[in-house]
Amino acid sequence: MSHTAHIRSHRKPRRSASKIAMRAGVAGGVLSTLAVAGASGAANAAEPVTQTLELPTLTADLAAQVAESATATELAAANYELQAERDAAAAKAAKEAKADLAEAKKKAEARKKAAEAARQAAAERAERAARDTERPTLTATASVATSASTSTATGSAASVISFLKAQVGKAYVLGATGPSAYDCSGLVGAAFKQVGISLPRVSQDQSTAGTPVSLSNLQPGDILYWGSAGSAYHVAVYIGDGKFIGAQNPSTGIVEQPLSYDPPTGAVRVL
């Protein structure tokens, strides 16, 4: 026996033909399967893929909700439109009311002015009527007084007359004592105040404040009155040359007039 007979060979044992054939068959089957899958994938890639989505069916409840929502939307829109119309109408009404108020105020002011003018005219007519009732006839004596009393004022009388002439043209306002407006006794009192003489406030008292003088013997600075002494309703101041200055009425204001314009009843002298 050889000395190497019990030493195992280092080479791998040969595979049997049957195993090799089996493995070849398996490999072939796998390759065939891959080939078929590749072909199928290529075919599928060439065709578009269509996906169908199914929407939920519109049920009766859902339809009712949609209809109700639409109705609510329409109602809200109608309410908004109605409110806009109401706001526009309110704004228009407010504007018209403001215009009507302004017009009413304007008319009221016009009526007030007309009433005041009528009142002043009535007061003037009443005063004129009272003077006509109390006025004596302008006699020859008064005419003599008019022509004779032409002396130039001097001293205090000149100061009084200068003040009076400066007031001519100003307004007559009942109860006013100057400097922009006067009534008849307010003007006389202010004139004599310039020379330090304080007279009573009203015409009734001014008609008895000095020494009574005849209308035929008037001097510049004498106080003229209309009505009775102690109850006179009007006063003025004689300035010479047959003229006087007085606050006559609201219509004429403070004027310079001849005695014949409104002959006085009497006169008093305080200078």
Score class of each variant (00 low, 15 high):
S9P: 12
R11A: 14
R11L: 13
S16I: 10
A17M: 12
I20R: 13
V30C: 11
L31H: 06
L34W: 11
S40Q: 14
A45K: 13
A46P: 04
V49Y: 00
Q51S: 05
T52Q: 01
A63K: 11
Q65W: 07
Q65D: 11
A67C: 06
S69V: 13
T71D: 14
T73I: 09
T73R: 14
A78G: 14
N79E: 15
D87W: 09
A91N: 13
A91E: 15
E96Q: 12
E103G: 07
K105H: 13
A108H: 11
A110N: 08
A110Q: 15
A110F: 08
A114N: 06
Q120W: 08
Q120E: 12
R125E: 14
A126R: 08
R128C: 03
R131Y: 07
D132L: 15
T133Q: 07
L138Q: 06
A140I: 08
A140H: 10
T141Q: 10
A145K: 01
S151A: 15
L164R: 01
Q167E: 05
V168E: 03
G169H: 06
Y182H: 02
C184N: 04
G186F: 00
Q194N: 06
V195L: 05
S198W: 02
L199A: 04
N217P: 01
G221S: 00
Y233F: 15
Y233Q: 04
V235H: 00
V237R: 02
Y238Q: 00
G240F: 01
F244I: 01
I245A: 02
G253R: 00
G253S: 01
P258S: 12
T265R: 03
A267L: 05
